[in-house]
């Protein structure tokens, strides 16, 4: 089944799954997320192994500021919700609403990213640099990988928004919306474990 069998105006209810290409894309992306799970798991295990190797640098309980982390968590959580709303709008074929929610999502993502950069900058001033200790290397690698994923997500969803503006919502563009939303949720789920394992457990 090819993309050409569907024409604008006759969009099926779940346009992302209307074509074989779309279904392939979603499945392949899920498998990729399986790989990403292992990737982040390995980073978590390195972090856990080195959580006490702080040497002269600041200890996690001295370093982390709960209010900051809480704000970042709420921002990312809300962005995940708005991303769901975007997919729901897509299922109702409300292109305008969908674009709006996507824009909100990346705006919140940018706020999150800005806060993270600010946070890293603060830590560096407190003597917690990338090369300070095994703990600091593992911390920046884990949290930095997550931040890199957020940045990539912002670029990606931004690109999808531009494409929808140009091409409209079709069976070709719909899977892109859906897959980028899945990606965004995944980043949020990873953050749930980062704020739990890194920040909160570091303060306990």
């Amino acid at each position: 089944m090819s993309a050409h069998e569907h024409h604008a105006g006759a969009l099926p209810p779940e346009p992302e799954k209307a074509t074989l290409e779309g279904r392939n894309k979603i499945l392949g992306f899920w498998l990729f997320l399986g790989a990403e799970t292992v990737l982040f798991g390995t980073l978590f295990s390195a972090y856990l192994a080195f959580r006490n190797s702080v040497l002269d640098g600041p200890k996690p309980e001295e370093l982390f500021q709960l209010p900051m982390t809480f704000i970042m968590t709420v921002v990312l959580l809300v962005s995940s919700l708005t991303s769901v709303f975007a997919v729901q709008a897509m299922h109702r074929h409300k292109t305008g609403q969908m674009l709006g929610w996507m824009a909100v999502t990346i705006a919140l993502g940018a706020v999150f990213l800005g806060l993270e950069i600010y946070e890293f900058n603060e830590y560096a001033h407190e003597g917690h640099r990338f090369t300070t200790s095994a703990f600091s290397s593992a911390f920046y690698t884990l949290v930095g990988f997550h931040g890199g994923h957020v940045a990539f997500g912002i670029l990606w969803i931004g690109l999808v928004i531009l494409q929808i503006l140009k091409k409209g919502l079709t069976v070709v563009t719909a899977p892109k919306v859906y897959v980028s939303a899945i990606y965004w949720h995944f980043i949020d789920v990873v953050w749930v474990f980062i704020f739990t394992v890194v920040y909160l457990m570091g303060k306990v």
Partner: peptide
């Protein structure tokens, strides 16, 4: 996909 990934992660975290 996710369960497989989590399985490997459990091994890894147990290891750490």
């Amino acid at each position: 996909g996710i369960v497989g990934g989590v399985f490997v992660v459990i091994m890894l975290v147990a290891l750490a």
